[in-house]
Simulated scan of single mutants.
Amino acid sequence: MSIRVIVAGASGRMGQEVVKMIGQHDHLILTGGVSRSQKGRDIGEALGLAPLGIDFAGSVQEALAKFDADVLVDFTTPQTVKENMELAIQAGVRPVVGTSGLSEQDLKELEELCRERGIGAIVAPNFAIGAVLMMVFAAQAAKYLPHVEIIESHHDRKLDAPSGTAIKTAELITKNRPEMKQGHPEEEEVLDGARGAYYQGFRIHSVRLPGLVAHQEVLFGGSGQLLTIRHDSLNRESFMPGVKLAIEKVMELDHLVYGLEKILDL
């Protein structure tokens, strides 16, 4: 079965990789792309590829009206992702979203909209299969080593902190770990923020530097031992197998799924 795809944020770093990945699979068909800065240009030419005969739309609303599609892949910004998803769902197009920034309330509202329309959606903080395994393994480790901290590192163009991956990891950990404040009870930050963000009794630290892509380690401490579970994405191609899987799986869903682990055989 062929799956027609619109890519929102197609001129961005992740969006470009999605366009290339779609071109490598016969059953995936790129029918449109969204980029405000490249509106009206041929998608292939704008991305340094062979001409595709498809011009960029300037907005998701325009793309949904202009192009036939089954799936909208969204790698845009936290400020626009919810509206993009709402527009897609209302148009009967299934969103596959890697953009972070959706709140718990946002997800509840989008889940209800999916159920009303009877179509699926997948929101994944991280599409790298290895990163998903890292999160699942961390959740298991928390049953036995409840003293934990998360350190996530990304490129300096990332807009949100902590990352969606770190927040998702923390959420999974808390399902297996009762809330427990760690460290010395009289601990004091000499410099504000030195201990990182506080989440359910443990800390999340964010690093932003040029040269990084996406990296996370989860540290578990116990008496006389340290367990480190780490994942590194060294390039954006690492996310594409997960994006492909999500595009395929979302066609089978009639509800919203949050987290790639929900569609893996784990």
Results as ranks from 00 to 15, higher is better:
Lys158Gly: 05
Tyr144His: 14
Ala124Met: 09
Gly23Phe: 11
Ile119Ser: 06
Leu226Pro: 00
Leu28Ser: 01
Leu159Ser: 10
Arg117Gln: 15
Ile54Lys: 04
Thr31Ser: 12
Ile247Gly: 00
Ser59Arg: 06
Pro51Gln: 01
Ala57Tyr: 00
Met14Gly: 03
Glu109Ser: 09
His154Gly: 08
Ala69Cys: 10
Ala10Tyr: 02
Asp156His: 12
Val93Gly: 09
Asp156Gln: 12
Ile173Lys: 05
Ala124Glu: 09
Lys262Glu: 15
Lys175His: 10
Gly130Val: 10
Gly183Thr: 07
Ala8Ile: 01
Glu86Met: 13
Ser2Arg: 03
Ile43His: 01
Met251Ile: 07
Gly44Ser: 08
Glu171Ile: 08
Tyr258Gly: 00
Val18Leu: 07
Ala63Glu: 08
Ala50Val: 05
Asp55His: 01
Ala246Tyr: 01
Gln105Ile: 12
Phe75Lys: 00
Gly201Ser: 08
Asp68His: 14
Glu261His: 14
Met134Glu: 14
Thr76Met: 11
His231Trp: 13
Val5Met: 04
Leu253Ile: 08
Thr165Lys: 11
Val218Gly: 06
Leu72Gln: 03
Gln225Met: 15
Thr76Tyr: 09
Glu149Leu: 04
Gly193Cys: 06
Gly211Asp: 09
Arg177Ala: 12
Val96Pro: 04
Gly222Val: 09
His154Ile: 13
Leu110Asn: 07
Lys20Gly: 03
His154Tyr: 11
Leu253Trp: 03
Ile229Cys: 09
Thr228Pro: 00
Arg195Ile: 12
Lys143Ser: 09
Val207Lys: 06
Ala246Trp: 01
Arg195Lys: 12
Ala50Leu: 02
Phe127Glu: 00
Ser2Val: 07
Glu188Leu: 14
Gly183Ile: 09
Gly32Val: 02
Phe202Ala: 00
Leu264Cys: 03
Val34Ala: 05
Glu248Cys: 05
Arg157Trp: 07
Ile3Cys: 04
Met14Val: 15
Ala46Ser: 15
His25Leu: 11
Phe67Ala: 03
Gln61Pro: 00
Lys158Pro: 00
Met14His: 04
Ile150Glu: 03
Val19Thr: 05
Asp68Gly: 13
Gln16Leu: 03
Leu227Tyr: 10
Ala194Val: 12
Arg230Val: 01
Leu133Arg: 15
Thr31Phe: 04
Ile150Gly: 04
Asn235Trp: 02
Gln38Gly: 00
Lys175Gln: 14
Met240Leu: 15
